[in-house]
């Protein structure tokens, strides 16, 4: 009886949370079209730029709320008995990318505000970035609508599974997120290498690079923290089972071995350039590369049956 009550309570919570996410998603979708209109107006240097900037800022807050709501919705749905299918995994990947893009959107808008509007410099790359980001957000929102409707449709039919001792879904989700963060981070550091060239990096630029790297790795890091908190709360849960441990060990070996040629390439490119960005970028590159290889090979080993 107590179990049935708990189940229906969980389902009620999940339904409420799904509706909250749906409301935020609808708002965010409307804002997406507003952002498109505002970007076009800013590009044309319309006189109403000041007011538009404030509304774009409000849109950022809605997006952050939506991403938090989405993360909680996914966690709640897993705990209620939903399984991580392809659509949900795609939504998690798209959500992680959107969260990271948000910070870079902000940076691109800052650049446009100072370079394009004040000094009249060309900001083609920033505009491409912003419109590309809008397109990606639209794709994420479409996927999220599908996830929400699937959850709303499936709430009644879902039954609680036996409580697992090892949190399998979290394990998979963490590896998917690790792959996405690793890939974006690696792309970012490669872009930074190419864009900065022999540029001497001053103090603020170094902190900016570190900040961006931190933002990119943050979704993966937050999942690890969440995982540890859950483990500390439930004495019955354990971190990994024996197959996962074996997969972790061999993936760790693969990541370590593949990092050697990668670091040799970095060493060769940095030889004779003591002031090059390598000095500051080698560590983020190493971190993202190993994260990508580790998470990718772990997932491959774990799922390959």
């Amino acid at each position: 009886m107590e179990q049935i009550n708990k189940e229906s309570k969980d389902k009620r919570h999940l339904r409420t949370w799904t509706l909250v996410t749906l409301v935020l998603l609808t708002l965010a979708t409307l804002w997406l079209f507003y952002d498109l209109f505002a970007y076009l107006e800013i590009r044309a240097k319309s006189p109403a730029i000041e007011k538009m900037s404030n509304l774009i800022g409000t849109g950022f807050i809605i997006q952050v709320l939506l991403l938090f709501s989405f993360a909680l919705l996914i966690l709640k749905s897993f705990r209620t008995g939903f399984k991580a299918g392809t659509l949900v995994i795609t939504a998690i990947i798209a959500g992680t990318v959107t969260a990271i893009l948000l910070v870079f959107d902000f940076a691109a808008l800052e650049d446009i505000g100072s370079d394009y509007l004040v000094h009249g410099y060309d900001c083609t790359l920033e505009w491409i970035w912003l419109f590309g980001s809008l397109l990606f957000r639209l794709v994420f929102y479409i996927i999220l609508y599908q996830v929400i409707f699937r959850i709303l449709r499936g709430i009644r039919g879902v039954t609680a599974n036996p409580q697992p001792v090892v949190d399998e879904i979290m394990f998979e989700v963490t590896q998917y997120t690790g792959m996405v963060c690793g890939f974006i981070g690696l792309a970012f550091t490669v872009y930074a290498y190419v864009a900065l060239g022999d540029f001497t990096i001053n103090n603020w630029l170094m902190w900016l690079l570190m900040f961006y790297s931190l933002v990119i790795v943050l979704p993966w890091f937050l999942l690890i923290i969440y995982w540890i908190i859950r483990l500390s709360r439930k004495a019955r849960l354990t971190l990994y089972d024996e197959k996962q441990k074996q997969d972790l060990a061999s993936s760790g070996l693969i990541a370590w071995l593949s990092s050697i040629p990668f670091m040799i390439i970095i060493l060769i490119t940095s030889l004779g350039q003591p002031s090059s960005p390598t000095l500051y970028l080698w560590f983020p590159s190493y971190l993202f590369f190993t994260l990508l290889v580790f998470s990718g090979s772990l997932l491959l080993k774990y799922k390959r049956i």
Partner: peptide, 26 residues
Amino acid sequence: QEELAAAVGVTRQTIHAVEKGKFVPS
């Protein structure tokens, strides 16, 4: 597989791998 996994304290994937002969259990 899920019920068995929960009963013996491993993941469903591990039970699946053992069943398929892809993983030798301890």
